[in-house]
Design a protein around this nucleic acid. Structure first.
Length: 563
RNA sequence: UGUCUUAUGGUGUAAUGGUAGCACUGCAGUUUCUGGAUCUGCCUGUCUAAGUUCGAAUCUUAGUAAGACAACCA
């Protein structure tokens, strides 16, 4: 019986792992496994990249291979060192270590030499038509293209012009190098794809002004894989139609049995957010969010600042899997993953977000008691700590109702509730100001019901969190919600900026938190009991505590109420 | 009137010709000094049609639907 369970519990492979195991079985590439994560340093990494990172690094480590980080930095117009640094930080935060760091720009000379070789073989030519003309000549997916008049330029002339493309003599846009393949191919990428273009308006962030002719993706990417010895080149579905060209370039230059294999998987789409770099950049530049690390952003740095743990992200990625089906993943699953992760690790603390005074009328004036409370009921090793109790407390405004429905298990006149880790108290009334707002709630405590005493085991429906007014700290708490108000902003025909959720950020400035949080450090995780998971924002200072809500606790009372 | 790819509960994902399973969501209950967590149960699915086969989610064909491809981006 047990052995059957073990057999069935054996994790099923995704289609990529199946390919890899088959390649291993076939002894391809001498049984070597090598992957790479190839970001372009033109933006910050987001949760979609995390999916690719987990696959690239995961496959390598699961099959005894290596994974390199390679920056695909072939377009100096868009790229910057700022991004190179953040990308490395984010990958490491996710818990991965690359074998080597490479840059496509390190291969510029090799790529150049191979391109010259291709020209010499008569398989590439310099076209000096405009981008518009070239595009027009490509035809459409259903109409074949027509040959460029420069297609049969003599080899010597091609070589000479190619040199000039790189010296600065040729203005930007005036000439390109194209592979000579098939202008009538049903695959648009075979209609004499561009291999090189001139960029002399921007210096490259690593090579400066050395190069004026830069290789294009289809040529540079595959060859970079080949130079490095990549065996499995994993990328997203939109590169599927590029694969024949990837293979074509490899075939032109390979000189052994080794060859890299491109495999495409589905990219991550999350509900209620956008994943496009362009749109995220727009949100940042137009000030619609506070930056790339705004806690509402799906960037890795945004999630980190929001309070997500790397473990939560891994567990989410594990749950959604890798397939060829273009899926819409429910952001609720990401939220579930972070709750699952933080539930095991976050210290429970008391924090009152919307405070109202609670006076224990029969408690001695000026007395203070130290209560012991557990740090994490899910983890005994987390230990206990002390919290102060006194006559004047703060409680959550929502936890009091003067006239309550039957199922309201909280503070209402005549009803007993437990103050977590302290006493059972009975509500006796409240005080209101001239406008009818409740300013104080009154209750009497039962001195025999202190936590741990026999009487404290009395059945009481509700347990409330609280802080002692004289001993608590003030804090700012930022409540975040989904960035967009529609499930799939990308599919909406309205401008995505009009779909932003106006309530995605609520700042509370009058919150009361227990004194133990005085020593909390930026990014520390906590559970504010009965409310949610929170972490310390980097904006937090010794004089002003700032917390971010990572995710709320599941709230079955709120659900009950909304019926 | 192209080429390529995809289609399994509300969502995501297994089953690799042999009992359609798991997770999330939802619902009901248990339990609890967090209306959290835990634990239990329930609901809901193979795009359509034909074929091959003892047997099809799986193979074949046709249809339907969705996506990718016509950047001097990656």
């Amino acid at each position: 019986m047990e052995t059957i369970d073990e057999e069935t519990a054996k994790k099923s492979l995704n289609f990529i792992e199946t390919f890899v195991e088959q390649d291993l079985k076939d002894a391809k590439n001498d049984g070597r496994i090598q992957t790479r994560f190839p970001p372009e340093p033109n933006g910050y990494l987001h949760i979609g990249h995390a999916k690719a990172i987990c696959l690239d690094f995961g496959i390598a480590s699961n099959y005894g291979g290596i994974c390199n980080l390679r920056f695909d930095d072939t377009n100096p117009v868009k790229e910057d060192v700022e991004y190179v640094d953040s990308i490395q930080e984010d990958i490491q935060w996710l818990g991965y270590n690359w074998e080597n760091i490479y840059y496509a720009s390190d291969y510029f000379q090799q790529l150049w030499d191979l391109a010259v070789e291709l020209i010499k073989q008569g398989k590439a030519y310099i076209d000096e038509q405009s981008a518009e003309i070239i595009a027009k000549q490509k035809g459409t997916p259903t109409v074949p293209g027509t040959d460029s008049p420069y297609r049969n330029r003599p080899i010597a002339e091609n070589l000479e012009l190619f040199q000039k493309m790189n010296t600065g003599e040729i203005p930007e846009g005036a000439m390109v190098l194209r592979a000579k393949i098939d202008m009538a191919s049903s695959n648009m990428h075979f209609r004499d794809p561009l291999m090189y273009r001139v960029i002399n308006s921007h210096p490259h962030h690593r090579t400066g002004w050395t190069w004026k002719a830069y290789p294009m993706y289809d040529y540079a990417h595959g060859q970079s894989d080949y130079f490095e010895g990549v065996t499995h080149s994993l990328c997203t579905l939109e590169f599927e139609v590029h694969r024949p060209l990837y293979d074509w370039f490899i075939d032109q230059f390979k000189n052994s049995n080794y060859r890299p294999r491109q495999i495409e998987f589905n990219r991550l789409n999350l509900t209620y957010t956008v994943m496009s770099k362009r749109k995220m950049l727009q949100l940042v530049q137009e000030g619609l969010v506070s930056g790339w690390d705004d806690p509402r952003m799906p960037t890795i740095c945004g999630l980190r600042r929001r309070g997500y743990s790397p473990e939560a992200i891994h567990s989410f990625i594990d749950k959604i899997g890798y397939t060829k089906f273009e899926a819409q993943n429910d952001i609720g699953l990401l939220e579930y993953s972070v709750r699952e992760s933080l539930n095991k690790t976050a210290t429970r603390v008391n924090a009152v977000l919307d405070p109202v005074k609670l006076i224990i009328t029969n408690y001695p004036e000026g007395q203070m008691e130290i209560m012991e409370t557990v740090n994490n009921p899910e983890d005994e090793s987390a230990g206990t700590r002390e919290i102060a109790f006194s006559k004047e407390l703060y409680m959550e405004r929502d936890d009091f109702m003067e006239e309550a429905p039957k199922k309201f298990f909280r503070m209402t006149p005549g009803q007993e509730v437990r103050l977590k880790s302290a006493y059972i108290v009975k509500c006796t009334g409240c005080k209101k100001d001239a406008d009818g707002n409740i300013v104080e709630v009154y209750a009497e405590y039962d001195s025999q019901t202190k936590s741990g005493m026999p009487e404290s085991s009395r059945k009481v429906k509700g347990t409330l969190h609280w802080v002692s007014a004289a001993h608590c700290l003030n804090a700012e708490v930022r409540l975040y919600d989904r960035l967009f108000s529609v499930e799939n902003p990308s599919a909406d025909e309205r401008d995505f900026r009009d779909l932003l959720n106006p309530d995605s950020l609520k700042v509370l400035t009058n919150c009361k938190v227990e004194a133990s949080l005085k020593t909390a450090n930026p990014l520390d995780h906590f559970q504010f009991q009965r409310i949610g998971y929170f972490n310390v924002d980097p904006d937090s200072t010794a004089g002003k505590l700032v917390f971010n809500r990572t995710v709320s606790l599941k709230d079955s009372w709120a659900k009950e109420q909304s019926r």
